[in-house]
């Protein structure tokens, strides 16, 4: 399915911890007549390996707190990884700084979740779109820049005459189009989209999804698409990675994943989508709640809610293993054939 040459973005052993305990003074507490030093951290990502192939749309799905947005932000360099490496087109990029990283800033772009916050309220649309072009192509003439801005505005369906307006004069869907135009303005190869449609209305979601698919075809883009909405994934994704508590629990072709989900969590997640043809909720009931990423459970992170968990699951962390269906699943029960 994959040859190493077609890998565009390679995420290797990625880990990210957020320190909660603050300074040294705040770590020290006095309990039972003794001083204790307690360090707490949120384990947002705990060892994620993912390869994004050229031209595909890799979807990362999961519920809040599973670390999917952290993966996106770490890949884009908005966060620095606690451990692991990120490679772009064979070149390690997570430790680059200053000038070295600039070419990758042009090749890799990002679309954000909240169209109401992702446009600078004090800048006109023209300014918003011109600035990145001017920054990355210092030699471009004024008329070249103006043409380029006009091109991208037209390609996302925004009237170029509206350039002198500010973001707040547009609706949510139009703002998201403008945000996409800003990302496209520098002609990227790879776009990370972090929940790009979850803040939009249903009828607008379809417009934005279509726009992203059009851009993918006409510009030969590669997407890393972060979402909590499995229905969108089925439509949009080439491959899907399901995350739970900072780990990938299943990775498969979209079709394979939706027809034969293997991991118990994927199954539960799929059954929970409310479908039009349902007359009653008919989801798989999970026990308990998602544990906090501060105190991770031992072994498989899902064992506390899994109906198939046994002693091995409580002790040993399962690794992604290829199954005969083509999917990669991190589950002892699947590996042992219990499931």
């Amino acid at each position: 399915m994959t040859s190493p040459s077609s890998t565009l973005v390679d995420i290797r052993g990625l880990e990210k911890k957020f320190d909660l305990s603050g300074g040294l003074l705040e770590q020290i507490s006095f309990k039972g007549g003794r001083f204790h030093r307690k360090q707490e951290a949120v384990h947002a990502i705990n060892g994620v390996d993912l390869q994004v192939q050229k031209g595909e749309a890799l979807c990362v799905v999961g519920e809040s707190g599973c670390g999917k947005s952290t993966v996106a932000r770490t890949v884009m360099g908005l966060l620095s990884p606690s451990a692991g490496e990120i490679h772009y087109d064979g070149q390690r990029i997570d430790h680059l700084d200053g000038k070295e990283v600039l070419p990758y800033r042009r090749k890799m772009q990002m679309i954000f979740q909240n169209p109401y916050a992702s446009l600078n309220p004090r800048m006109t649309i023209q300014q918003t779109l011109e600035e990145p072009i001017r920054f990355h192509q210092p030699d471009a003439t004024e008329s070249q820049i103006r043409d380029k801005v006009q091109d991208v505005m037209e390609s996302v369906g925004i009237d170029p005459d509206w350039g002198s307006r500010f973001g707040h004069e547009f609706s949510g869907g139009q703002r998201q189009r403008i945000a996409i135009a800003r990302a496209l303005a520098v002609d990227p190869e790879f776009i990370v989209a972090d929940e790009p449609i979850s803040a939009l209305d249903v009828s607008i979601q379809a417009q934005v999804l279509n726009l992203m698919m059009e851009a993918q075809e006409s510009r030969n883009l590669t997407y890393l698409f972060i979402t909590h909405d499995l229905a969108v994934v089925e439509h949009f994704g080439t491959r899907v990675a399901v995350m739970y508590l900072g780990r990938v629990c299943e990775l498969a072709d979209t079709r394979t994943l939706f027809s034969t989900p293997r991991h118990p969590y994927t199954q539960a997640l799929l059954s929970a989508i409310p479908k039009l043809e349902d007359d009653r909720p008919n989801h798989i009931r999970l026990q308990g709640e998602v544990p906090t990423p501060v105190e991770l459970p031992s072994g498989c992170v899902f064992h506390g809610r899994c109906p198939y968990a046994d002693d091995r699951c409580r002790q040993q962390i399962p690794q992604l293993i290829a199954t005969d269906g083509g999917a990669q699943v991190a589950c002892h029960a699947v590996e042992e054939g219990r499931l």
Binding site: M76, M110, N114, S118, N120, F135
Partner: peptide, 22 residues
């Protein structure tokens, strides 16, 4: 914390530019 600042960072703008212009 707002996303337009992240968008500026992703563009590769320098800290000074983000602080004063954005």
């Amino acid at each position: 914390k707002k996303e337009y600042v992240d968008a500026a960072k992703v563009m590769g703008f320098r800290t000074r530019r983000i602080m004063f212009r954005h």
